[in-house]
Amino acid sequence: MNTAVQPESEASLIEDLKRGDSTAYRRAVREYSPGMLAVARFYLDHSSAEEIVQDCWVTVIDAVQKFEGRSGLKTWLHRIVANRCKNRLRTAKREVATDFSETLEPELANRFNSTGRWDLPPKLQFHDSADTLMENGALSDCLDKHLSTLPETQRSALMLYEAHQHKSDDVCNILDVSASNLRVLLHRARQKIFLMVETFQETGEC
């Protein structure tokens, strides 16, 4: 399901924002805040992240007047959030702790024998298309639950890349991670989702 604002309607949305149209702001807040929150959660705890996103929207009212559309509106908003978060971390002299040393989830790594072959190969094939799988409410709830337990760094990378369809370069720029570290974050997060769906399909349990 793709509900993203299309380029031509994005241009008219930007014009409406520049005019200070409150309906346009309501629409934009609903469209872009989830992604902005995902960016902020990469850097900050939940309540600070919400605070930053609120502050950013207030900043946007003036800043959008100078927005020239060199990047998409979504990327621009995500960069504003990332910069604010980085400034706040700089002030607090804190850094985001991340572990990029292992590319395999331990639960998956244990399924190979010492020669590097599968000991416990995947048994079931996920036959259904993503849309069909998502029609299963229990699986959708289970996915929500697992996404909420992912480390913030993995979840933010996953949300920006998969759900908000940013390009790798944009995600690296917004989250301030190298391309190779982004690959590790994405791969670790995908493995966790793979393990979750596998358990769900085999046992029906989350």
């Binding site: 993503a130 998502m134 996915l143 989702i193 793979f194």
Partner: peptide
């Protein structure tokens, strides 16, 4: 195939609800 399906599943899943 399953890892790719997991990735598609995430794209199909809501892009994060606030």
């Amino acid at each position: 195939g399953n890892l790719r399906a997991s990735s598609n599943l995430l794209s199909a899943h809501s892009s994060g609800k606030a």
